[in-house]
Design a binder for these strands. Structure first.
Length: 228
DNA sequence: ACCCAGGGTCATA
DNA sequence: TATGACCATGGG
């Protein structure tokens, strides 16, 4: 199974996902930082706190005290580190002239610059690049490692290598930001519904994606018959 | 009382 | 290089 085929299958199963949930580029970037190892539900609560406090903007966010910011971020967890990360990102963004100022940078240069901001790692950087800047990069997350690994789409040796997985998908799909954003959104959706950390009986769905995946578990499911 | 969630950094071996 | 600890809240 190739990434384009996977995209087609996931689209059939779940339909278009309409990502990223965010009004503008800045809000999308804020969400990318706040949802680190955190459910979107909780990240959204923190974003709504910022909006209600009229602080969902680069200048307003930089003007408020760190303590106040931490209070608003509490619902999304890790609120002290996330307040610091958000502040550092805003300072960096302001120094580059906001999102319009980023347009002059090439995608590789912009990616390196984002990775240079303390608290922004590969996944957060790529989420900002793809969904806020609409650059053609693929966002690799825990769901992607899990699903790709179970599908045998990536070899076992490279299963935890971010760059290897990212390059593989980007080469297969091409520099098409809409396909790349749709695939990442679908991988998340599929992971939240069917591709759980610990295999459950919904692996029936996984077999639809790749009949040769998980032979042992597939056999167990077949032996038990259909659930649901 | 567990496990999980749209990561990243730091200390240690 | 590769694990483990840590950050912290909310839902199932």
């Amino acid at each position: 199974m190739t990434p384009p085929e996977l995209l087609d299958r996931l689209l059939e199963m779940h339909g278009p996902q309409d990502w990223w949930p965010g009004e503008d580029a800045f809000e999308i970037a804020v969400g990318a930082i706040l949802t680190q190892r955190t459910s979107w539900r909780n990240a959204a609560r923190a974003i709504e706190n910022l909006r209600a406090a009229n602080c969902l903007g680069i200048d307003a966010l930089l003007r408020m005290g760190e303590g106040h910011l931490q209070e608003l971020l509490k619902p999304c967890g890790f609120y002290r580190v996330k307040a610091a990360r958000l502040t550092r990102f805003c300072r960096w963004l302001a120094a580059h002239g906001g999102f319009p100022g980023l347009g002059a940078m090439s995608t590789p240069a912009l990616r390196e610059a984002l990775l240079g901001v303390h608290g922004i790692g590969p996944e957060t950087a790529d989420a900002i690049l793809l969904y806020a800047c609409e650059r053609p990069v693929f966002v690799v997350d825990a769901y992607a490692y899990r699903l790709f690994g179970r599908l045998g789409l990536i070899d076992a040796l490279a299963q935890r290598n971010y760059e290897v997985v990212r390059r593989r998908v980007e080469c297969a799909l091409g520099a098409d930001s809409s396909s790349l954003s749709e695939l990442h959104a679908l991988v998340v959706r599929h992971g939240q519904t069917f591709c759980r950390p610990k295999p459950l009986c919904e692996q029936c769905r996984l077999r639809e994606l790749c009949p040769s995946a998980l032979p042992a578990h597939a056999a167990a499911v077949a032996g038990r018959g259909s659930h649901h």
